[in-house]
Design a protein around this nucleic acid. Structure first.
Lengths: 161, 161
DNA sequence: TTATCTATGGATATATTGTATACATGATAC
DNA sequence: GTATCATGTATACAATATATCCATAGATAA
């Protein structure tokens, strides 16, 4: 259970775009050079951020990527879900259904199965709650919070080009 | 970022072991048959549970696996960490270190690097906190809690053999 | 129109996960 | 003490997910 490196990379890209002088668009190869990942991989990552409405892509000479909205409107959860999707950690197979087939107990099969289904459902609920806890924390932190560390040291803008 | 199916499988196995008549050891092929996974994979999974001290393995005729301790002393977190390890979701590459090399700003390179390092460290701290939230929830739920659903319906023991 | 960029999808390489098989090691019943 | 049947370990293999490369279509400024 590990997170894609694209999440950390995306966060760094967003900081770079915010720091860019006059918020001019930054080209993909400049970003991939800095991050030392392939341009194609970075473009696919950026595409996800575009679809999520976090950055804008300008397809033109003098084009590139720029932030689509203010940094205080972009949470870590937004970025996480843009990359990892909004699905669940656990993919509930119907394990419980299969376990009690052909079991040798003197209890009716249906009873055992029903009870186990409840137990498994309980587990899934707990994992789901744990996942909500995780995501709630990510939602409480924005790119603007991140930038505070940068601003506080009187550090200004950078031209990446 | 998905959880191994081995986690859910492990939980089901633990329930089976607890339900087993007189807590006699259950052989691996009986478990893998029920779960419909390969015996080799299940053995690897069970080995992790043994190493984590959650189950005991008896290598003998009439041997198999049984619980190593009471179900109220086994949390979902114990099982999760036995399978997934106790490492972090995110593996901090030193991305920030590399980004600001050779940058064209008029600010000294060291300043930019230092500031970004702080920002990235902040992100990692937040992700770490989110992960703690997730694990804290898993720690609050035990196999005994799971079994309550089973016991409450006056359901007894099962002989899996 | 043309130069220069992004958008997209298919082919390839690498890493991770799950499966199959064989054999070594270990614990108990007898 | 030894036969027996279990777990433990190693290897090769298949399936899947992740990351990269490449070729080409599409959009915009000049």
């Amino acid at each position: 259970m590990k997170m894609s490196k694209a999440v950390e990379q995306s966060l760094v890209v967003l900081v770079m775009l915010e720091l860019q002088t006059d918020h001019e668009p930054v080209k993909s190869y400049l970003l991939s050079d800095r991050l030392q990942v392939s341009e194609s991989y970075l473009k696919k990552t950026m595409r996800k951020l575009v679809v999520a409405g976090i950055v804008d892509a300008i397809a033109s000479k003098e084009g590139g990527f720029k932030l689509a909205r203010p940094t205080d409107k972009i949470t870590l959860l937004d970025v996480y879900e843009a990359i990892e999707g909004d699905g669940s950690f656990i993919h509930s197979t119907q394990l419980a259904d299969r376990i009690f087939l052909n079991q040798q107990s003197d209890k009716p099969v249906e009873d055992v199965q029903e009870v186990l289904d409840v137990a498994i459902a309980d587990v899934l609920t707990t994992f789901s709650a744990a996942e909500q806890d995780f995501k709630k924390r990510l939602k409480s932190y924005t790119i603007a919070n991140l930038m505070q560390n940068v601003d506080s040291t009187q550090f200004g803008e950078i031209d990446w080009r």
